[in-house]
Simulated assay, not measured.
Amino acid sequence: MNIQAYAAAEPKADFKPFEYKAADLGPHEVLVAVEHCGICHSDLSMLDNDWGITTYPFVGGHEIVGTVLWKGDDVRHLQLGQKVGVGWSSGSCMHCRECMSGHHNRCSTVEATIVGRHGGFASHVVCKSEWAIPIPAALDASKVGPMFCGGLTVFNPFIEADIRPTQRVGVVGIGGLGHLALQFARAWGCEVTAFSGSPAKEEEARSMGAHHFVNSRDPKALEKVRGSLDMVLVTVNVNLDWNAYINTLRPAGTLYFVGAVPPVEFEVMPMIMGAKRIMASPTGSPATAADMLEFCARHNIAPVTEHFPMEKINDAFDHLRSGKARYRIVLDRN
């Protein structure tokens, strides 16, 4: 079949209508009819070829919500017409040590939805069935797309770092990732501290779950929370004074990166003396994604979204590039 999409011909170019023929679908694959697709900052990085891995014409989109239109003969767990989501990953080998241990997102040959293939800025998208995640009926399908990348990215650290409800969590950056991390941390049962260089965001950060707000541009404010946090979740993609944030950790605390920051520098001795650690992770496994959606349904967690018709994709990217998005952008197909 022919798939109608929007593609960019070169870095920083506008998206234009583009048609391509879908490859023959395999027995473990599904064809998803796209209804909504979030725009992630990673889509912008891929459009601009910031990471040097983009191929053109580029069809982005990896926060996809749609319905199963076709499924391979060996797909037993999904039904035609079922509402599913597809995120950053769309396939994994299913036989390596990481896949067999449930960490499909760490598979060395994991297939990224928009790297070397066409994504969800389109009428349809193809993925391996294990990466098409059923969406609970209690969730608003028009808003849930960003959970499959941004949401999963900040949900996974709570599991990987073994965070308990009695612990204290800080979130650095109140944006597309951070506003979801605040909601997760509060619902997890943690005491939550928001760090932001924008004092005007304090009221909103508290409404999303923060118990405390720290102006990250104020060294004295950072010093006041020294030794108080079990995890500091970094959602920004810029370099900060990481020693100051390491100092906010309790002994055995974790500085956890999910933002693609430039190379970092920090002092090792405070890490040694406090038995502290630095961690990072990519999105999450299909099982973690399913758990996240159930958690969202149980606690009424959802991204704050702005919506554009998919044909207005260039306006949506201009809005994202301007830094004015609050907090996730979703493209809707008619």
Rank of each mutant, 00 (worst) to 15 (best):
Q4L: 10
A22G: 04
H28E: 15
L31Q: 13
H36V: 07
G38K: 00
C40W: 06
C40Y: 03
H41C: 02
D43C: 09
M46W: 12
L47M: 05
D48G: 01
W51D: 00
G52M: 05
F58A: 04
G60H: 04
E63D: 12
V65L: 04
V65P: 00
L69Q: 15
K71D: 05
D73C: 11
D74K: 02
H77G: 10
G81I: 00
Q82C: 11
Q82G: 06
G87I: 08
G91F: 00
S92F: 12
S92R: 01
R97V: 11
C99F: 01
N105V: 12
C107G: 08
T109E: 12
A112P: 08
T113D: 09
G119E: 02
G120D: 05
F121D: 03
V125E: 00
A141K: 08
F158K: 10
I159E: 11
D162Q: 15
R164Y: 15
R164A: 14
R168Q: 11
V171N: 03
I174E: 14
G176R: 05
G178W: 01
A181P: 02
L182Q: 03
L182D: 04
W188Y: 10
C190M: 00
V192Q: 03
T193Y: 14
F195C: 08
G197R: 14
E202D: 13
R206V: 13
P219L: 08
E223S: 15
G227H: 09
L229S: 03
D230A: 14
M231R: 06
V234Q: 00
V234D: 02
T235L: 04
V238T: 12
L240K: 12
I246F: 00
N247S: 14
T248S: 00
R250C: 07
A252G: 07
L255V: 09
L255M: 03
F257L: 15
A260E: 09
P262C: 05
P263H: 11
M273Y: 15
M279H: 12
P282E: 11
P282A: 15
S285T: 13
A289I: 02
A289L: 01
D291N: 14
V304I: 15
N314R: 06
D318A: 09
R326I: 12
L331T: 04
R333P: 00
